[in-house]
Nucleic acid binder design. Structure first.
Lengths: 243, 243
DNA sequence: ACCTGAACACCGTTCAAGT
DNA sequence: ACCTGAACACCGTTCAAGT
């Protein structure tokens, strides 16, 4: 027995020593999963790799999380927690500044954290009660700013979700590009010669990052949306009989 | 030998008879892959399952497509072809009608075809030269409508991509929900009681499909964007010294 | 109660044939 | 030139233990 163990050690194949009872916690698993995802990407997160990183038997993880999907749900919940903890409180004195700051922060935060972005935006909306409530409280805050400014409740809600969809769309597209290994910051496009007969597009493509979800284009959409909302606000105020 | 074959047949394990040379074509593989994806979803598309559906050895597919990713690229190219073939030509006499119709058709088409949606929108932008050119020609058409209406080339380009990102964002979010098996059409939310303290949101959530990418919200964003663009157009016309 | 390896059914891909 | 199964390294998950 001792000789078998020694031989195994010589070839690097020795068994891990058994972990003590209670030496694994769900928190430790989640922390290890984040570390692995940060080092190698969320797509590289597998149960065997995670077990190895944690120095734990593969099946031990199943004692705490009933499936990989269950684990990913817990990771998403933690990602949402980190995201909302990092989001600064609402700032800006006018409703339009509030929207601008909120969605700029939204985008900036998730652009800077691939793991949190993958777990919150890219991975379908797998909300727990907790994350749902976190989101809803933030949304309500903004809706109340808009309503106080004179928007109807309906307009305010539509305005919020439209900007939210737009911002998440930017993040989704940019992240998809980055996952495929495209250089997202360089202007122009490698196949730009194909657009020789396309005067307007080829000219604009030379100036911007070709995938068109760069800062300038994002800002254009944000500002344009706010411009549209000013007209909505005027109509809402009129309809409600305000000054 | 004959007895082994007979025994195998009895247990349903007999070998497929070998296909004749030249009896497999890449087109046939692609057609089979679409059929399988339509029947069982793109995520269920695996090389063994496809081979089985085509009644072909698994490895034979690798003669025509060097990897699954290569095959998916070919499927995407076909999906783009189908999408652009189904997109009606530009309609509408004013620039805003052109935009409205284009992006409504865009969304409607991809909402009605999960396979094409998964291969074009959900799967990162894996463009071939051909699909890139198809997209660019369509975009250029719209840019020229906008420029003719008085938009600067820069505004026109930003306007197009902003609406494109918004529309793709709607599709992405809705599709993500549907993949997770949520009922996307029902108003309200199963966890709506959590929002008891959120007056505006809870009221609005009772009226709409909770995930907020329903027709009404999409239309609000589309119209709002166009409202914003009217102000851009006025400024662009002024700047260019037009009437 | 908690941790474990063996085993299973799947996957994408390579290789060394067969025809 | 084209088609093939066996084999490999991986995956998620279950099961029947071990402690």
């Amino acid at each position: 027995l001792a000789s078998r163990s020694a031989a195994a050690a010589a070839t690097g194949n020795q068994r891990r020593q058994r972990r003590a009872r209670g030496s694994i916690t769900p928190e430790e698993v989640i922390r290890g999963a984040f570390e692995l995802a940060e080092a190698e990407g969320v797509e590289a997160l597998s149960m065997p790799r995670l077990a190895q990183a944690l120095d734990v038997g593969v099946t031990s993880i199943y004692w705490y999380f009933k499936s990989k999907d269950d684990l990913l749900g817990a990771l998403s919940a933690e990602a949402f927690r980190r995201f909302y903890a990092a989001m600064p409180p609402l700032a800006g004195r006018e409703w339009d500044d509030v929207l601008r700051e909120f969605f700029r922060n939204f985008r900036a935060l998730l652009r800077n954290d691939d793991v949190v972005c993958d777990l919150t935006i890219m991975r379908g909306a797998s909300h727990t009660d907790e994350t749902l409530l976190q989101s809803w409280e933030r949304i309500e805050e903004i809706l109340e700013v808009l309503v106080a400014a004179g928007f109807s409740e309906e307009s305010a809600t539509s305005a919020y979700f439209t900007l939210s969809v737009y911002t998440r769309g930017c993040l989704f597209i940019e992240r998809s590009m980055r996952v495929e290994g495209r250089d997202v910051s360089a202007p122009g496009h490698p196949r730009a010669h194909l657009s020789a007969d396309l005067p307007v597009l080829s000219k604009e493509m030379r100036k911007r990052s070709w995938y068109m979800v760069d800062d300038e284009t994002f800002e254009f959409g944000l500002e344009n949306h706010i411009r549209g909302l000013r007209a909505v606000l005027a109509a809402d105020r009129e309809a409600s009989g305000a000054v």
